[in-house]
Amino acid sequence: MIKINADISIADRWPLNIFPIAPGQQRQFVSSGTDYILLRNASYSSHEVDFKGVHGALAVSAETEYTVCCGMDASAFVVRYPGLRLEEQRYFTQKNLDIGNLSYMDGGTNTTAINPGRLGDPVVNYVHFPSNMYQTLHTHPSHRVGLILSGNGKVELNNKEMFNLEEGSAFFMRRNELHNFITGDVPVVLFVFAPDSGCGPTDEVNALKVRTYIGQQRGQQNDER
């Protein structure tokens, strides 16, 4: 597990490039794959949209030109997935850093900020960990990139190693790394990117198809028209 202080490239099962935008900094990008942008009180602008000073997660399709700008109390990170070329753009903002819509482990909650278009596509979750939480030990089968929106805590790793979580910072966690989150007197809220989703629409199960009913018969009056 590492803290992201500079541009890094991950050459693994899911190749990723991660670009931090520090407080007081502005960076311009042109997406060469699909970019996932995590914002903490930061700004994003392109030809299509303009967000000012938001907590947000965005998915930007290939060949999009955009700018990310951070004030002195802001931070942001771009996670580039060069092997994925989505056509659509997706935007999520969270005004109040409150609990999420779904139940997670040990009192945590989450909201799916960027939904996967298909089962297995990347996903971004908004996660709320309550105060005084000592999370159950666990692993994930794929990388995780997190941006701490508020609060400070720790991640307990192997050999009793502690990784500090600081508001505004980001981390990269390699797949299958054993860990658990620990919070103090205040909650910890963060965005978490994963390159693969364990759930999502498929051709067989999708929101349009499950609300489509076939086999009905028209009445005789309709048949005569």
Rank of each mutant, 00 (worst) to 15 (best):
I2F: 03
K3V: 08
K3N: 08
I4R: 05
N5F: 12
N5A: 14
A6V: 06
A6T: 15
D7N: 10
I8K: 08
S9A: 11
R13M: 14
R13E: 14
P15M: 12
P15K: 04
L16S: 05
L16W: 14
N17F: 04
N17T: 14
I18N: 11
P20T: 03
P23H: 11
P23A: 12
G24P: 08
Q25R: 12
R27D: 07
V30P: 00
S31W: 10
S31F: 09
S32Y: 09
I37L: 12
L39S: 08
L39C: 01
A42F: 03
A42C: 05
S43A: 09
Y44D: 03
H47D: 15
E48L: 12
E48P: 00
G53F: 01
V54E: 07
H55C: 04
A59W: 03
A59Q: 14
V60M: 15
S61Y: 06
E63K: 09
E63P: 01
E63Q: 13
Y66V: 00
T67A: 04
C70D: 13
C70E: 05
C70R: 10
C70F: 10
G71M: 06
M72I: 06
M72P: 07
D73S: 14
A74C: 12
P82S: 14
E87V: 15
E88R: 10
K95Q: 11
N96D: 02
I99T: 11
L102M: 11
S103E: 12
Y104E: 09
M105D: 04
M105G: 04
G107K: 02
T111I: 06
T112G: 01
A113T: 03
I114G: 08
G117I: 12
P122G: 13
N125W: 15
Y126V: 06
V127H: 06
H128I: 01
F129P: 00
P130D: 04
P130K: 05
P130L: 12
N132T: 02
H138L: 09
T139Q: 03
S142A: 11
H143S: 04
R144I: 09
V145T: 08
L147S: 05
G153A: 04
L157C: 06
M162I: 10
M162Q: 07
F163V: 11
N164W: 02
N164I: 02
N164D: 07
L165K: 07
E167D: 01
G168T: 14
A170C: 09
F172Q: 05
F172W: 02
R175N: 06
N176Y: 06
E177V: 14
L178I: 11
L178C: 05
L178P: 06
D185K: 15
D185N: 15
P187I: 13
P187Y: 10
V188Y: 05
L190P: 02
F191N: 01
V192S: 11
A194Q: 15
G198A: 15
G200V: 07
G200E: 11
T202N: 10
D203M: 12
E204P: 01
E204W: 02
V205H: 09
N206S: 06
N206Q: 08
A207V: 08
A207S: 15
L208D: 03
K209F: 01
Q217D: 08
R218E: 10
G219F: 07
G219L: 00
Q220P: 06
N222L: 06
D223H: 09
E224G: 00
E224L: 00
R225V: 00
